[in-house]
Design a protein around this nucleic acid. Structure first.
Lengths: 202, 202
DNA sequence: GCGAACGTAGCACGATCGTGCGGAAACCGG
DNA sequence: CCGGTTTCCGCACGATCGTGCTACGTTCGC
């Protein structure tokens, strides 16, 4: 790995760190430069525009999320265990960030009314995660114990809402009960999607 | 109403409109000035700082939200009808904004990592809405038909998640199914909180 | 009708943003 | 060890931001 790639990696590391605090739009070349001990133009030479820097930082953050959340889930047996690992990893990733909350959520609200390549990429990323949740839910149904008349996309959407709520309560409202609430909501979602227990005979 | 108050009102009207697009932080004096046909300094004289402008815009947005969402709910009979009116009004308010999504959500993510009076006020506003939902839920329990062993705060938190999810899916993902998903999630929340039906005797 | 209070515009300021251009310094294959 | 390439810095630019000051026009109570 050449020297350039090395510093580029260091920049991205700090960049993700900063983006979790100030968002993708809030990233500034100058602040990132001083955070890495470089000059503004020296850093800028690595990416030839701010947009390209944002895309690179977003890519790095996505890679880290996949490594620490999605991949461990895919290494867990299909069905409910995998769903639980996915949820716990996701929740931990959201709640760990302090302060600032999830980078992807922040970027999504920032870029909601502003089109461009960064927004397009971010939409793809969100859709990927959305699809992944739905897919894991399908393995739950396939492995048994879950109703097959529940739309996987509806479940994914509901889980997304739980995570957004947890992120909001934790990062913004500073509510320590956010974690417990999210976990209870998740259990309720699972319960509602489970096959009804055989009616106990009195 | 003096002339000053009149233009101040006009500024706030445009200000809320702009804030729904670009957020509270994204508001700029210059853009708001040209949007109202005033000079920068002329507008600036009404509020003596940007922070004060943000607080005023936030207050105006809150007043509008209370008028169009909360007040109609409080005029509806206690219990489930009131909860439904609250939900429908809230959802309509979220989905109507196009593009940009809910101003309060956007402001919350923007200000999550940045303390100050604006953030403090916004936290109070969110907590008020949160409490209002929990209170309406208590009327549901009191009017009968709902379980009394469900934490009202948990219900409020869950509903908040549903709305955040709907806002995200609509404003950012541009998903037309957001409305239906939100409505189904809401019904599921209600069903889970309802008193169990008397066991049918086979 | 007049004078004070009010409302607004013109202009300028320092700061900070993204971006670009040489040139010096560091690196590295041969 | 050397020459070309890569990497980085100093410096500067135009734009835009929030914020003030001054002065001119308008409004309105007395």
């Amino acid at each position: 790995m050449t020297k350039g790639d090395e510093t580029r990696q260091a920049i991205l590391h700090r960049g993700v760190e900063a983006a979790y605090r100030v968002g993708l739009t809030g990233l500034t070349i100058g602040e990132l430069a001083s955070a890495t001990g470089m000059s503004k133009s020296g850093l800028y030479a690595h990416f030839r525009s701010k947009e390209s820097l944002q895309l690179a930082v977003l890519g790095q953050a996505r890679a880290e999320f996949v490594d620490t959340v999605v991949a461990p889930a895919l290494r867990t047996p299909r069905g409910e265990p995998r769903m639980r690992v996915l949820f716990e990893g996701w929740l931990a990733c959201d709640l760990r960030q302090d302060p600032g909350g999830c980078l992807f959520v922040k970027a999504a609200t920032e870029l909601a009314a502003q089109e461009g390549p960064v927004r397009d990429q971010l939409v793809r990323d969100h859709r990927d995660l959305y699809d992944a949740v739905a897919q894991v839910f399908r393995t739950c149904v396939a492995e048994g114990g879950f109703r097959d008349d529940v739309e996987p996309e509806q479940f994914a959407s509901d889980l997304y809402g739980v995570m957004l709520g947890a992120n909001h309560a934790h990062a913004f409202m500073d509510d320590p009960r956010a974690e417990g609430r999210a976990r209870r909501a998740f259990e309720a979602l699972l319960d509602a999607a489970r096959s009804p227990a055989p009616v106990p005979v009195p």
